[in-house]
Design a protein around this nucleic acid. Structure first.
Length: 165
DNA sequence: GCCAACGTTGGC
DNA sequence: GCCAACGTTGGC
């Protein structure tokens, strides 16, 4: 017999962003250190936001498309999923002509940056046997949002993401 | 800039 | 509903 799920367990996420314009530094400098995570155009990632994310979930803030992709900060989910307005904006690179306000296709969440970490790149992650199953390390992974297990999160926080000695 | 992997599209 | 072609992602 399990306890009633009045309070669902916290989950953990890895969220990729381009550091040119939306680095952990940009996020920390934003009002309330919070960014609207717009531009997700993949159904699986959208469904994570819609179905599984909850306010307070932990986030590994990942920089991608840069010299050294990896974890650069810690953040948390700061809002429920809501309609991503960039899908309706013809001037936006994320414009989706098939989306209408009546039938929106894409969602976003607010992400609140908490702090920078030391950079932890993919080679470092791969060198840790306890992290070998992280989705971001799997061949062919292209998802910009992946779920991190509580074990991976705890392990990371206890080792690689601790402040330098 | 390359290219493997994967998602999406659209003809049938 | 199949599946080939195409586009995109993102590490390298």
């Amino acid at each position: 017999m399990t306890a009633p799920q009045t309070c669902a367990p916290r989950r953990y996420w890895l969220m990729k962003n381009e550091p040119d314009t939306e680095s952990i530094d940009h996020a920390l400098a934003a009002p309330d250190a919070t960014l609207a995570w717009s531009g997700v155009r993949n159904y699986q990632a959208r469904n994570f936001m819609r179905d599984r994310m909850q306010v307070g979930d932990g986030v590994l803030y990942w920089h991608s498309g840069c010299a050294l992709p990896g974890i650069y900060g810690l953040a948390c989910i700061a809002s429920a999923a809501r309609v991503d307005p960039t899908q309706f904006d013809p001037a936006s690179p994320y414009f989706d002509p098939r989306a209408t306000p009546d039938k929106p296709r894409w969602l976003l969440v607010d992400v609140k940056a908490l702090r920078k970490t030391r950079p932890v790149d993919m080679a470092t992650l791969r060198a840790d046997p306890q992290l070998s199953r992280m989705q971001v390390l799997q061949k062919g992974n292209r998802l910009s949002i992946t779920e991190v297990t509580p074990e991976e999160w705890q392990h990371l926080c206890g080792t690689l993401l601790q402040d330098a000695p």
